[in-house]
Amino acid sequence: MKLIITALRQEARPLIEKLGLKQDPASRKIPVYSSDDTLLVITGIGKLYAGIATTHALHLVGNPDDCHLINVGMCGGVGDRIALGEAVAIHKIWDHASGREFFPDMLINHSLQEGSLGTFDEPITTANRPILSCDVVDMEASGVFQAAHLFLAPHQMLFLKVVTDYLDYSTEDYAQMLQYYEQSVDDWMPVLEQDPQLDKPDPVLSVGQETLLTNISEGMRLTETQTHKLHDAALRFLVRGGEDLEIIEPNLNVQPEHKSLRNQLFDSMIQTLNQ
């Protein structure tokens, strides 16, 4: 079950439409929308309301083990590293009031950029902002995290925020800010629609990397043992956190004329992977 948490109706609206969610008439104080596999709650502004609504939603979900929580919303950018209308996956949440830091697990690969977020008890503008070491600010994330963490593991949470201002705005700018948010939805919707089946085993080598190895092996006419050794060295290279296999890509179109040259190239490939 996907559990989406937003603070505002305006933030929820595009999601309700795209995911075809229906309002639950029984839940009036805390608006709840749902489909077979998704539940969305609108928390209201501030981390206290966010925490209460998150807890409420988790009770509605029933079995937290199958739940994947996503907190989506607008946020302010500290500095202009992240463009207006761009979505950020949050790897650290800092609660300004308590000084505590919270970390969702960053396990799933996506194309969004990442950043750190500060949660404040009041709106932050250039007029009242302290010196900030985070990338973006909001008013809910730490409340959502703390409430959710009572029921969920850190790998079951994703915080996704869209930069809609640089902490310098007035009420007249609100329509424009909302527009930034709405226009960004298509960029991050695929992340939301992804159904991370975290229990499924995942091979260390991707399909592309397997293909690369096969092509190198066929191109260089490696023996069966050499092919096996190459595969193994590549696997171990990636297990140790090695960057992509591009370091052996230059061998892709190499077709050595003699066995001895092939063996030499093979040895040097293995050596590269073992370093």
């Binding site: 790897h91 960053m106 396990l107 799933i108 690969n109 992804q194 991370p196 995942d202 260390v204 990636l238 297990v239 140790r240 956190g241 992509d244």
Partner: peptide, 9 residues
């Protein structure tokens, strides 16, 4: 689907 090993320090 997964981030590569040691994607974050």
């Amino acid at each position: 689907m997964w981030h590569k090993r040691f994607s974050h320090i």
